[in-house]
């Protein structure tokens, strides 16, 4: 309370505005994340791969963990030395 009473109204108002802006930005980032919007630098509008991020069957062409490990094992078999 001592801290707040020593601040004065202009500071308190400015602080509330800052907190609201920051809160709003954090909320937007969370909402975007939940909605599956991009959080990478490129943004979706000009991205070549945006459908791969958001389409339901985007995983279709991606190898499974087992396939990744299997590829390593098959390479192990190639390696004889």
């Amino acid at each position: 309370m001592l801290l707040f009473s020593s601040m004065g109204w202009p500071t308190i108002v400015a602080l509330i505005v800052i907190v609201l802006i920051i809160g709003g930005l954090i909320a937007k980032l969370i909402v975007d994340k939940v909605k599956g919007k991009s959080s990478c630098s490129c943004g979706c509008s000009g991205c070549a791969m945006k459908d791969m991020c958001h389409s339901k069957d985007a995983r279709g062409t991606k190898p499974s963990e087992q396939e990744m490990d299997a590829s390593a094992q098959s390479s192990d078999n190639i390696e004889t030395n």
């Binding site: 991009s38 990478c40 630098s41 490129c42 000009g46 991205c47 070549a48 791969m49 945006k50 791969m52 991020c53 062409t61 991606k62």
Partner: peptide, 11 residues
């Protein structure tokens, strides 16, 4: 442009 779609394009 951005590493994220680049990494995805490896598909």
């Amino acid at each position: 442009g951005c590493g994220v779609p680049g990494i995805m394009a490896s598909r």
